[in-house]
């Protein structure tokens, strides 16, 4: 586990900054809720009548005036995007950075098999995503309690679980891509996260594009569906898990045979 420790030490600063930023934004939004609640009667109608924009964020099906509705939409954007960016960046860089920073010649000439390097780096990504999800979950529950609202345990837990799965899936995809990269990984990581996010918005707006929900992990994170159904869509989650695991398998296949420059 030498490499896991090494990776975690290396990414400590970026992990702390991302976790603090997402946690802070999330808490700020929750703290805004009491103020907004009083004005919500009017606002909900406004939000519910903005046409495509309303549909894109699922605001036609959620009540902005309740904590659950408010949290599902707000959480979907802050935690959804923030977590997706972090997971994508973290995984996209983890294999490729050795060649980019020219440390591959150091690391890979030690008596450590490529499989072990891949596995330990994967574990490091997994630990970071899991730790971040747990910290954010605690912060979210804590801030809801702090504003004196009753905590909707089931909905909040399901929402956070779905975003955790989304981060794992994106990390799996980006990990696979990372095995092919030699230079910058930031653009590709961000690009994938943003594309997935917009695919879901398009699916929400246009009925013909509904199938996109089965491609993007944001499909099974849709707050409106989770709150309404009380569960995630099993098929979407299964497809997502397959894609994520596929990415990891590709990373193993590619990186064990890769010529290192």
């Amino acid at each position: 586990m030498t490499l896991v420790k090494h990776e975690l030490r290396q990414s400590k600063v970026s992990f702390l900054i991302w976790t603090a930023s997402i946690g802070f934004l999330l808490a700020v939004c929750v703290f805004l809720f009491p103020e907004m609640k009083g004005q919500m009667d009017g606002v909900s109608d406004v939000f519910a009548s903005m046409g495509s924009f309303t549909e894109a964020f699922g605001m036609d099906r959620l009540n902005f005036g309740t904590l659950t509705g408010f949290y599902a939409i707000e959480c979907g954007n802050v935690l959804g995007l923030g977590g997706a960016f972090f997971a994508a960046l973290c995984a996209a860089g983890i294999l490729s950075k050795e060649e980019k920073d020219k440390t591959a010649e150091f690391l890979l000439t030690h008596p450590v098999s490529r499989q072990r390097i891949i596995t330990e780096k994967l574990i490091a990504v997994f630990i970071q995503i899991t730790a971040m999800s747990m910290i954010i979950y605690a912060l979210a529950v804590g801030s809801i309690a702090a504003i004196g609202e009753e905590i909707p345990w089931k909905e909040v837990s399901l929402l956070h679980l779905s975003f955790y799965l989304l981060q794992l899936e994106l990390a799996g995809i980006c990990f696979g891509i990372s095995a092919f990269l030699r230079k910058g990984s930031t653009g590709i990581g961000l690009g994938i996260a943003v594309t997935m996010y917009f695919l879901n918005l398009i699916a929400n707006i246009a009925d013909v594009a509904d199938f996109l929900k089965y491609i993007t992990p944001f499909g099974y994170c849709e707050g409106a569906d989770i709150v309404a159904n009380g569960k995630m869509d099993g098929i979407m989650v299964a497809i997502g898990a397959t894609i994520g695991i596929g990415g990891i398998l590709i990373a193993y296949l590619k990186y064990t045979k890769k010529d290192i420059h």
Binding site: Q10, D101, K102, T103, E105, F106, T109, H110, P111, V112, S113
Partner: peptide, 21 residues
């Protein structure tokens, strides 16, 4: 037997870089 070989090699790269931090 790459790992067994590397265990007993010391390699000095021409422009090896390290984790700067």
């Amino acid at each position: 037997e790459k790992e067994a070989v590397l265990q007993n090699i010391g390699y000095l790269p021409s422009e090896g870089l390290f984790y700067g931090e």
